[in-house]
Simulated scan of single mutants.
Amino acid sequence: MIMEIAIEVKNLNISYKELKAYSIKKMLFSHGKSKAEPFHALKDVSFSISKGEIWGIIGKNGSGKSTLLNAIAGIFAPDSGTIDLHGNSVSLLSIGVGFQKNLTGRENIILGGLLLGFTQKYIEEKMQEIIDFSELGHFIDKPVRTYSSGMYSKLAFSITATLETDIILIDEVLSVGDEHFKKKSSARMKNLISNDDRTVLMVSHSLSTLKKLCDQIMWVDGGKIKMIGQPEIILDLYEKYMQ
């Protein structure tokens, strides 16, 4: 049986400028110019994921995990190489990915949905479900800049968990909010992940979670793929490596 490919990454390279620490005095005498050196976040990364598979990504902080998810989500543009999602819709669940702070929660739901490729009609049909799940009440019509971090994360989670895409990218977020909301969001996430047609790529430092949920593990180190394989094998090797 030929497996349908959902995500295909070939020879992906991404770098960005890294500013070095610079004193005010030096900056004044260099006419405001500061030294910036390229940091190679991803180096010649290639892999493919079949439709319905759940992959986990592991690696030390700064190894390129979040950069990879952001690139697949279309937030970061590659310097070279290709990312082919084979026509699948994709969403990124990451509390660090921002809203427009001066817009209300409701306006951010519409904007977020449009950026995910959904029609305004569909988003408006799902609007009340998103609001109810978020438990934000009247705050949904307040600017997001007035939200606490908990409210912010609840809204981000509710949008991704309700406007379901073919591919879900998860960056360290499997449940959010207070204890009540954590149980609810964890249950919703497990339900989303268990859909056989949905492809999931997740970054997590919880090795037990990855071992329980994933079909394959990708180990990223220094911007390169170190290893891809079965969770039990890769995670055991990684644990020994980190010790």
Rank of each mutant, 00 (worst) to 15 (best):
M1H: 12
I2G: 12
A6R: 12
L12F: 14
S15G: 12
K20E: 15
A21K: 14
A21T: 09
S23Y: 04
I24R: 06
K25M: 02
K25E: 01
K26S: 13
K26C: 03
G32H: 01
G32A: 04
K33S: 07
K33G: 00
K35S: 10
K35C: 05
A36Y: 13
E37F: 12
P38Y: 14
P38N: 15
A41E: 13
L42E: 09
K43Q: 15
D44F: 12
V45C: 02
S46R: 15
I49K: 00
E53N: 11
W55L: 15
S66M: 09
T67N: 07
T67P: 09
T67R: 03
A71L: 11
G74M: 07
A77L: 14
D79T: 13
T82V: 13
D84K: 01
N88A: 15
N88T: 09
S91Q: 12
L93A: 08
V97D: 12
G98H: 05
F99E: 10
N108Y: 13
I109M: 09
G112T: 12
G112I: 04
F118A: 10
F118V: 10
Q120C: 07
K121A: 07
I123M: 09
K126M: 14
M127K: 12
M127V: 11
E129F: 01
E129H: 12
I130D: 03
I130T: 00
I131H: 06
S134F: 03
L136M: 04
G137C: 05
I140R: 07
P143R: 04
P143F: 06
T146Q: 11
T146D: 05
T146R: 10
Y147P: 09
S148W: 08
G150N: 11
K154Y: 04
K154L: 06
F157R: 00
F157P: 08
I159S: 05
I159A: 09
T160Q: 15
T162G: 05
T165R: 05
D166S: 15
I167W: 00
I168H: 05
L169P: 07
D171W: 02
E172K: 07
E172H: 01
V173G: 00
S175W: 06
G177M: 02
F181W: 09
F181Q: 07
K184N: 02
K184I: 00
M189N: 08
N191C: 13
I193T: 00
S194E: 11
D196T: 13
R198F: 14
V200K: 01
V200I: 15
M202K: 03
M202A: 14
S204K: 05
S204D: 11
L207H: 06
L207A: 01
S208H: 04
L210N: 07
L210Y: 05
K212M: 08
L213D: 06
C214I: 08
C214G: 10
C214P: 01
Q216W: 04
Q216M: 01
I217E: 00
I217W: 03
M218Y: 03
M218H: 03
W219Y: 07
V220P: 07
G223N: 10
I228T: 15
I228N: 05
G229P: 05
Q230Y: 04
P231M: 08
I233D: 00
I234A: 06
K240D: 07
M242Y: 00
M242S: 07
Q243K: 14
